[in-house]
Design a protein around this nucleic acid. Structure first.
Lengths: 184, 184
DNA sequence: AATCTAATTTGATAATTATCGAATTAGATT
DNA sequence: AATCTAATTCGATAATTATCAAATTAGATT
């Protein structure tokens, strides 16, 4: 999971820190100067600068008494270029459970014995249930309509609806005239 | 002042909202689905989506029961392009008081009668004080060294140091051999 | 070496905000 | 028309974080 991206946005999600970036884009400043310009205490500015430094946007050089901070314009440009690249978008999603929605629907509609309380009326939920039901059919194996109904009857008495929706949703195929069904 | 930029960053400065953006980059989702995928309550997701919508990153279409949200990829790209443009950087700084630092230094070093407590040892503060002192000289008018000392004596007894620093910092000029000074 | 000075760190407080549950709303289905 | 359903809004709470004051640190000047 990419904390890096969130931290980058968090670093800039503060009005005073944005002002600091704007000021440092003009010229380097010491902590004390920034504090005076922003009407903040040096300790507060130090805290803000630490957050900006943490994501590599600014860095400090000591000059005599002062700690002079400067903007790393290269980092700023390069980071801003691919903020929303495929990589970053994909990375933000990497730890979400893709099956969470189906599992929730299954949990809501399936009894402990595996049968369905009802057949969902809502499209999205029906599809989740169909994906669940379809797992009872071995991939690429041919089933007679009678056998299909037998299997579906474990889930719900309205086997005709289930069968029709399975085919309609594309989860199962039916041979044109004959009564053969299969899952690909 | 540009709240817009801060709000944009704030909208993305949250791990769950970044995940929402990542998910919507793949396909549109309803609030309910997002809630299940992120393991959050619908009301929380609704709140997040409102923030994203506020900055124009997502929008909703109602489909039957559902409110299906989609990512506005155009807005995403266009906004991310000039996040750190000159305009935005300048805008973030527009309401900072450019004289605040000098004013603070002056407040620290100048007595109510206008005289200096001391001449600052620190470079940056000395320069602020010199800018303050230099205002006592009319621009482009010529002053004899004696007159310069007389004016500077209102600030500090060490008129020689003040005079030397004023010239050294470039705030005042001196004619080569003669004793004439002026401010440009 | 002794003294200054700016910066940082630490601890406390106030403000912001993410999250949830309950109540309400808007729309679709029956 | 009556009933469902998902979404939103509202109110409350917990978690985060911006800010400051005080104490400490690191470095430079004398």
């Amino acid at each position: 999971m990419s904390d890096e991206l969130v931290n980058f946005f968090k670093a800039l999600a503060d009005s005073n820190r944005l002002k600091i970036v704007g000021l440092l884009a003009q010229q380097p400043y010491s902590v004390e100067e920034l504090a005076a310009l922003l009407n903040l205490k040096p300790s507060t500015v130090s805290h803000h600068l630490a957050k900006l430094a943490q994501v590599g946007l600014v860095s400090a050089k000591t000059q005599s008494y002062y700690n002079v901070y400067q903007l790393d314009e290269k980092a700023l440009q390069s980071k801003s270029q691919n903020l929303f690249s495929q990589q970053n978008l994909a990375a933000s999603v990497v730890d979400v459970d893709a099956d969470a929605y189906d599992n929730k629907v299954i949990k809501d509609y399936v009894r402990k014995d595996g049968s369905l309380k009802t057949i969902p009326a809502q499209r999205k939920k029906l599809e989740a249930i169909l994906r669940y039901v379809a797992k009872s059919f071995e991939a690429n194996k041919r089933y007679s309509e009678k056998k299909v109904n037998e299997i579906l009857s474990k889930y719900h008495e309205d086997t005709a609806s289930l069968r029709r929706e399975l085919v309609g949703s594309g989860l199962m195929k039916r041979e044109g005239g004959g009564g053969e069904y299969w899952r690909e």
